[in-house]
């Protein structure tokens, strides 16, 4: 067991050397946001690693101790779930309480000292069933291979169920919006007709009395 753990630690370092995740470039101080539309009670794991452009070698420095990333997570009501400064690489995980669009924003905390240079950000976001680590599950719950497969299937089914109930919730919102539009159009057209008739009547009466007073008719 101990050997297993140690080997996993070694594997971790190897993995971090390779860093095979997707990456993109941002300028320092630039803000980058990603949106995750998720049902409630869903775990999101964000892994990232930042590298600073090195003008001398023309490449990216693998590790930059001075650079930190400011990570913000907002829930669907625009409430801050977390807002913290992390080091140049790290892992953030959160579980949604409310279903909806969660916004994950990141920007570097660097000072004007570095400003203007490029940052390379390796990013990996895993949601729901993808965020479950089966090696760990098997290890912890002592599951056989088949049990593990079934566990994965169960997780997938749970995810689908959650997504569907969220879908119902959103469909309801969609319907409410459409019904509200329908109501507004109806009432507005009625009101508009009323206003037009009223105004036309008032105009005619007012002008008639005016002309009579001026002895034009």
């Amino acid at each position: 067991m101990e050997i297993f753990k140690i080997s996993s630690l070694i594997a971790l370092f190897i993995v971090f050397d390779v860093t095979s995740a997707l990456y993109f470039h941002i300028a320092e101080g630039e803000r980058k946001c990603f949106i995750e539309e998720i049902p409630d009670d869903t775990t999101v794991i964000v892994n990232y690693k930042v590298e600073l452009y090195d003008p001398r070698s023309g490449g990216f420095m693998p590790s930059t101790p001075g650079i930190g990333m400011h990570v913000e997570v907002r829930d669907p009501d625009d409430k801050m779930l977390m807002s913290r400064v992390y080091s140049s690489e790290g892992m953030i995980s959160f579980t949604s309480v409310k279903p909806g669009e969660h916004v994950i924003c990141m920007y570097s905390n660097s000072t004007s000292w570095f400003s203007g240079s490029q940052l390379r950000v390796h990013l990996d976001i895993q949601v729901g069933e993808h965020a479950v680590d089966y090696a760990n599950v098997a290890h912890k719950d002592k599951l056989t291979e088949l049990q593990l497969r079934i566990r994965q299937l169960l997780d997938q089914v749970h995810q689908i169920t959650k997504e569907q109930s969220y879908q119902r919730h959103r469909e309801e919102r969609f319907r409410q919006t459409s019904e509200s539009t329908n109501q507004r159009v109806l009432w507005w057209s009625l009101l508009q007709t009323g206003v037009l008739v009223g105004i036309g009547y008032w105009q005619m009466r007012h002008l008639k009395s005016f002309f009579e007073a001026k002895k034009l008719v």
Partner: peptide, 8 residues
Amino acid sequence: LFTLIHGI
């Protein structure tokens, strides 16, 4: 650690 490995 496991999660990190898996994630990457």
